[in-house]
Computed example of a mutant assay.
Amino acid sequence: MRRLRPAHFVLLAVACCALPALAQQADQLYTATHEQLEVTKTLLEQQAAWNKGDLAAYVNFYKGAPDTIAVLAAPVHGLQSIYNAYLVNFPNAAAMGSLDESEVNVRELGDNFALATGKYQLTRNKKAGGDAMGTFTDILEKTDRGWRIIYSSTT
Rank of each mutant, 00 (worst) to 15 (best):
A85H: 02
N125A: 03
K142W: 05
V39R: 11
E35T: 06
Q25M: 13
F113A: 15
F90A: 00
F90Y: 15
S102M: 09
Q36A: 11
Q28H: 15
P20Y: 06
N60R: 05
N60F: 04
Q80V: 03
Y83K: 07
A13I: 12
A13P: 04
L29H: 15
E101G: 07
R3G: 11
E35Y: 08
Y151H: 12
H8G: 14
R148E: 12
Y86Q: 13
G53A: 07
R2Y: 08
K63T: 02
A7W: 12
V59M: 00
G78Q: 01
A57V: 03
K52Q: 01
Q47A: 14
V10Y: 07
M133N: 15
A56K: 12
A93C: 06
Q47P: 09
R145N: 03
L99P: 05
E45W: 02
P91G: 04
Y86K: 04
A21S: 15
N89Q: 11
Q80I: 04
F61E: 02
A94I: 02
D67N: 02
P66M: 08
S81V: 02
F9H: 11
L72K: 02
L29N: 08
G110W: 07
E103S: 09
R148C: 09
K126C: 13
F136E: 03
Y151T: 05
Q24S: 13
A65E: 08
V88T: 02
L87A: 15
L99V: 10
F113V: 09
N51K: 03
E108N: 11
H8D: 14
F61N: 05
S81Q: 06
R107Y: 14
N112S: 14
S98F: 00
Y86V: 01
G118A: 03
